[in-house]
Deep mutational scan, measured.
Amino acid sequence: DVPLPAGWEMAKTSSGQRYFLNHIDQTTTWQDPR
């Protein structure tokens, strides 16, 4: 597995969808940043 870039975290919604948190610029995205 390729690790997420620095500052990123993967999370899941209550319905189980994956999303990605960027802690550096305080954004979220559905797109995997890798």
Rank of each mutant, 00 (worst) to 15 (best):
D32P: 08
T29N: 10
L21S: 04
S14T: 12
Q26G: 04
F20T: 04
L4A: 06
N22H: 05
T13M: 09
Q17G: 10
G16V: 02
T13S: 08
H23F: 00
W8Y: 08
S15W: 12
E9N: 08
W8R: 05
T27K: 09
S15Y: 14
P5M: 05
G16R: 08
V2H: 15
Q17K: 04
T27M: 10
D25S: 14
L4P: 06
D32L: 07
A6T: 13
P5Q: 07
V2R: 15
D32H: 09
Q26R: 15
M10Q: 14
D32E: 06
F20Y: 12
R34I: 03
D25C: 15
T27D: 05
P3R: 14
M10I: 09
T27Y: 12
R34W: 01
W8S: 03
Q26N: 00
P5H: 02
R34D: 05
D1H: 12
Q26W: 02
A11C: 00
T29W: 08
T13K: 00
A6C: 08
A6S: 11
G16I: 02
E9H: 06
T29M: 05
P3H: 14
L21M: 09
L21H: 04
S14G: 12
E9G: 15
W8C: 03
L4R: 04
D1P: 15
Y19C: 02
P3V: 08
T29S: 09
T29R: 07
S14D: 08
I24S: 10
I24N: 14
Q17V: 09
A6Y: 12
A11Y: 00
H23R: 04
H23L: 01
D25T: 12
G7H: 08
D25P: 04
L4K: 02
D25K: 15
G16N: 08
T27G: 00
S15I: 11
E9R: 04
F20D: 09
W30T: 01
Q26T: 01
P33M: 04
Q26L: 05
P5L: 06
Q31S: 10
G7D: 06
K12D: 08
Q31G: 11
P33H: 03
I24Y: 11
G7Y: 06
Y19H: 03
S15C: 07
L21I: 13
T27P: 02
Q31K: 09
P5A: 07
D1V: 15
S15T: 11
D1K: 15
T28K: 01
S14N: 12
W30Y: 02
L21K: 15
S15D: 09
R18Q: 09
D25L: 13
G7N: 08
A6I: 10
R18C: 09
Q31T: 12
T13F: 01
A6R: 12
W30L: 01
S14K: 15
D25G: 13
L4H: 06
Q17R: 13
G7E: 00
N22I: 00
V2N: 15
D1C: 14
D32K: 10
P33L: 02
N22F: 01
V2D: 15
A11D: 06
A6E: 07
Y19N: 03
Q26Y: 07
R34N: 05
A11T: 08
R18F: 11
T28H: 05
A11E: 04
L21F: 04
Q26M: 06
R34H: 04
H23I: 05
W30K: 00
N22M: 00
T13R: 03
H23V: 01
A6L: 14
Y19W: 01
F20M: 05
H23K: 03
N22E: 03
V2M: 13
T29G: 08
L21T: 06
R18W: 14
E9A: 13
T29I: 02
W30V: 00
Q31L: 08
P5G: 10
P33K: 02
V2T: 13
L21P: 04
T28L: 01
D25I: 13
S15H: 10
I24A: 09
V2A: 14
P33V: 02
Q17D: 09
G7R: 08
W30S: 01
Q17P: 04
Y19L: 00
W8Q: 06
Q17H: 11
W8M: 00
A11L: 01
R18Y: 11
P5T: 07
Y19R: 00
Q17S: 11
T28M: 01
F20L: 02
M10G: 13
T13A: 09
Q31N: 14
D32S: 08
R18G: 07
A11P: 03
H23G: 00
M10S: 14
P5R: 06
D32N: 08
D32F: 07
Q17W: 14
S15L: 10
E9T: 12
S14M: 10
P3G: 14
F20C: 02
A11N: 06
P5K: 05
N22P: 01
G16Y: 03
G7V: 03
D25Q: 15
T27L: 11
D25F: 14
S15R: 13
D1F: 13
R18D: 10
T28A: 00
T29A: 07
D25A: 15
I24P: 10
S15F: 12
P3S: 14
Y19F: 05
N22Q: 05
T27N: 09
N22R: 05
G16W: 03
K12A: 08
H23T: 04
G16E: 03
N22Y: 04
G7C: 07
S14W: 14
W8E: 05
H23Y: 01
E9I: 04
K12V: 08
P3T: 13
L21Q: 06
G16P: 00
S14C: 06
E9K: 07
V2Y: 12
T27I: 09
K12M: 10
S14L: 10
R18A: 11
M10V: 11
K12S: 11
W8G: 03
R18H: 12
L4Q: 05
G16D: 07
T13Y: 13
Y19K: 03
S14H: 13
M10N: 02
